[in-house]
């Protein structure tokens, strides 16, 4: 059941850079996938040689293995003029794809895991924020999230209270909108696209759409890689490996509201691939 649901979502399987390195063997939902061709004309086949559908969106190559795929969501900010689009490559993590998304939605860990960058003691308090499941497109949204950050972005000069919004348009995608230091009226967009290799291993493809014309590309990518790689050792050391949907094993508080809303939304959809749906 969990696999049947997951098969009908679209997943990132490659980007321009990875295709330029030549054909690639990878995995999706436990099965082997072969990726070849060019970025303009990618060729994706499953283990039996069946050609899989592809589409190019948000600077990545997407595919699906399902018979009735749900339409791929949009991130309209990606089309706004003036934004710089920054694909950041891929990082492999031995964790549930859902745990990678959940961690991305979490702010309370900033002072301890992204110390002196996204947070610092004693500024650990999480102010109340708002979480909702928006009915019109069935997405999880967390809004009015605020957190004090010593060095919020590559373009930030010092400590600021950063405003955040989170959006979960699909079980393995999370979008973050945050205060854009050089352009206070706009928001930077930072996204992770998670390719579920199996229920316990994933490839994470970060992607950004920023208002920042000054910072060199390499610095932008490395800032994002620095942040994500600080999370990697956390993600590989949470137990159980699969994301528990029953909170019996954990003690969520108000600051975990986004995490709980995400799990509730997964439960409602039956999106159990990478989750522990049963009671232990």
């Amino acid at each position: 059941m969990s696999l049947a649901y997951a098969r009908n979502d679209w997943y990132v399987i490659a980007d321009r850079n990875s295709l330029e390195q030549g054909p690639r063997r990878t995995r999706l939902l436990g099965d082997e996938i072969h990726v070849s061709g060019s970025y303009a004309h990618p060729v994706i086949k499953d283990a039996s040689g069946r050609m899989l559908p592809t589409q190019i969106k948000f600077d990545h190559v997407w595919t699906t293995v399902g018979d009735r795929p749900r339409p791929l969501f949009d991130i309209p900010e990606g089309n706004e003029p003036g934004r710089r689009l920054v694909p950041c490559g891929m990082v492999r993590v031995k964790c549930s794809p859902l745990r990678a998304v959940e961690n991305f939605l979490d702010i309370a860990h900033f002072p301890f895991v992204h110390t002196d960058v996204l947070g610092a003691e004693p500024y650990t308090e999480v102010e109340p924020y708002k979480v909702e499941i928006r009915e019109q497109n069935d997405e999880v949204w967390a809004t009015k999230v605020k957190f004090f950050q010593p060095l919020a972005a590559k373009s930030a000069a010092g400590g600021i209270t950063t405003d955040y919004e989170y959006r979960v348009p699909a079980p393995t995608t999370a979008v973050l909108y945050k205060t854009c230091p050089p352009k206070p009226e706009a928001q930077d967009v930072i996204t992770i696209f998670v390719q579920p290799r199996s229920e316990t291993e994933c490839d994470v493809w970060p992607w950004m759409a920023l208002y920042d014309d000054d910072t060199p590309y390499a610095d932008l990518v490395q800032f994002q890689q620095m942040i994500f790689l600080q999370d990697r050792s956390i993600l590989e050391n949470q137990r159980p490996i699969k994301l528990p949907l029953d909170p019996r094993m954990e003690i969520p508080t108000r600051s975990d509201l986004t995490s709980v809303a995400y799990r509730r939304w997964l439960k409602k959809r039956g999106a159990f691939y990478g989750a522990l749906a049963e009671t232990l």
Binding site: A108, H109, P111, F112, V113, E121, T124, S233, I234, N237, Q238, R239, P240, P244, M249, E250, I251, P252, T253, D256, S259
Partner: peptide, 26 residues
């Protein structure tokens, strides 16, 4: 070896005085 909050391994944590703190959310 598991923080009851969100399941992070406490062996990655740090000692503060007479307390052990979880590395994930402290």
């Amino acid at each position: 070896n598991r923080c009851p909050h969100r399941g992070m391994a406490l062996s990655h944590g740090f000692v503060r005085g007479e307390d052990l703190a979880c590395l994930y959310h402290g």
